[in-house]
Design a protein around this nucleic acid. Structure first.
Length: 418
RNA sequence: CGGGGCGUCGUAUACCGGUAGUACGCUUGCUUUGGGAGCAAGAUGACCCAGUUCGAUUCUGGGCGCCCCGACCA
């Protein structure tokens, strides 16, 4: 993409009321636009990052047998009444509205009820099971207080998967597979070494749930990590001896850190199915509740976490797997030779499947470099008289700052194989 | 929801009970071109409502919005 055609612009300063690093940088670099408190639009650059993250998650969910679909944003109150979660006293994040034709609707803050209700149409025999379905949905939550930029908004994108299985045993199998899939997701986006499978409170349904917590000072949670075993315990269940039995670790071996929840997986067992009436017939013809598991992963929050963890004092630094582009091609100067070479390189790279943001604007070098640093694309390739005289291009790694001079063929092989 | 803070061109930031200034951005022109350029000329602003006052962007009250701390976050 040509930067001269990108409608967003970078800014020198962040709006004064944005304090969160993720919001400051994402707004300054033109990735997001704040519509209102806790509600952000994702502009072309931000959209590309989201899509990169989603595609990684999508691949991993498909790999464990997930079937992608999409539920509705508007929800039927009747479904939630069956599980006693329509009442504002029970769920305090509801957005609700009235239909002009009469009656109420809810705005989806979660989807396990509607999906399970829907599944009654399709699951009736053990032969229909197991099924794993997932979606990327915009969740709407009437949070009392939005905060931390895109980390905790009233509107955010989440991947939620649901597993429908015959029994505990089948459930455990997929549950374990999803844990592995999540670990791969966090590895792939570059957070593997600081993201921990964490024991947490199970709420009303089970004794424990599992969270995926990424160590970060901006986190809202306190967890206790066991580095060798790569597991952790959330403070909320820290004192329960059962945890240590399950984990097989000693309390003294843990260290306390701040962390942010990026995923949460949950075992509903048969409870929700019983409430909603989702039963199947087993081989003996007996009616059994379908065993439900729920697997959330915050897509937009993950993007915020990546900003918080990798950004430096010059701006964003994207891990390659989620960067909006692979290469920031920067043309310096407007001489014919430079222009021709830059255009040629742009064609060559895109022709070889490399995603390129081409800064073809007629602005000064300092501004281009500053913008390039701020936008945070992994590789910067500079085309200028300075290196053209030796037939080379300057290549700068955003994260390390390492600079090298490469010929066209070296550059293409470097960018297409690395 | 409890507590605190803040609303001035697009952004940031001054000042003031009496013509609202600066920087960046934007428009036009010339120069400049490897780390957010220079000169010149422009365009653009007081969140809303009420009160006090000869006069309110400024003071008072209410509303709305935004941020932070806490609570909340199956």
């Amino acid at each position: 993409m040509r930067q001269s055609q990108l409608f967003t612009k970078t800014r020198r300063e962040a709006p004064k009321d944005e304090v969160a690093k993720n919001a400051q940088l994402l707004i300054r670099a033109g990735y997001v636009y704040k519509e209102m408190a806790g509600v952000y639009a994702y502009l072309p650059l931000g959209f590309r990052v989201l899509e990169k993250i989603k595609n990684i998650v999508r691949e991993e969910m498909n790999a464990v047998g997930g079937q992608e679909m999409i539920m509705t944003g508007l929800q039927n109150p009747d479904v939630w009444k069956k599980t006693d979660r329509w009442d504002d006293e029970k769920v305090d994040v509801w957005f609700k509205s009235e239909l002009k034709s009469g009656g109420e609707v809810g705005f989806g803050w979660s989807h396990e009820e509607p999906i399970t209700e829907m599944m009654k149409q399709y699951l009736s025999s053990y032969r229909d099971l197991p099924q794993y379905v997932y979606q990327f949905q915009t969740k709407l939550r009437n949070e009392l207080r939005a905060k931390s930029g895109i980390m905790r908004g009233r509107e955010f994108v989440m991947k939620d998967m649901y597993s429908y299985t015959t029994d505990e045993e089948a459930h455990k199998k997929i549950y374990g597979s999803v844990i592995d899939a999540y670990i791969r997701v966090f590895d792939r986006v570059g957070l593997g070494d600081r993201t921990f499978l964490t024991f947490a409170s199970g709420g009303a349904f089970t004794k424990f749930s599992h969270e995926f917590q990424t160590i970060s000072d901006v986190g809202e949670d306190t967890i206790y990590v066991h580095d060798a075993k790569k597991v952790a315990v959330n403070k909320e269940v820290y004192d329960e001896p059962v945890v240590y039995e399950e984990l097989g670790v000693k309390k003294e071996e843990l260290r306390e850190v701040k962390a942010i929840e990026v995923g949460n997986i949950f075992d509903f067992a048969g409870i929700k199915s019983e409430q909603l009436g989702l039963y199947y017939k087993n081989e003996a013809g007996e009616e059994m509740p379908v065993h439900l598991g729920s697997y959330g992963l915050g897509i937009t929050r993950l993007m915020g976490v990546l900003v918080e963890i990798f950004a430096d004092d010059k701006g964003l630094v994207w891990p390659e797997a989620v960067a909006p582009f692979r290469v920031h091609l920067v043309q310096l100067g407007t001489e014919d030779e430079v222009k021709t070479e830059a255009e040629e390189l742009y064609r060559e790279l895109t022709g070889n499947g490399v995603e390129v943001l081409f800064d073809d604007r007629d602005v000064r070098a300092g501004e281009k470099f500053a913008d390039s640093d701020l936008i945070g694309i992994p590789q910067r390739v500079v085309v200028s008289q300075k290196t053209l005289t030796e037939g080379k291009f300057e290549c700068v790694d955003r994260q390390s700052g390492t600079t090298s001079h490469k010929s066209l063929s070296e550059l293409i092989s470097y960018l297409t194989h690395a």
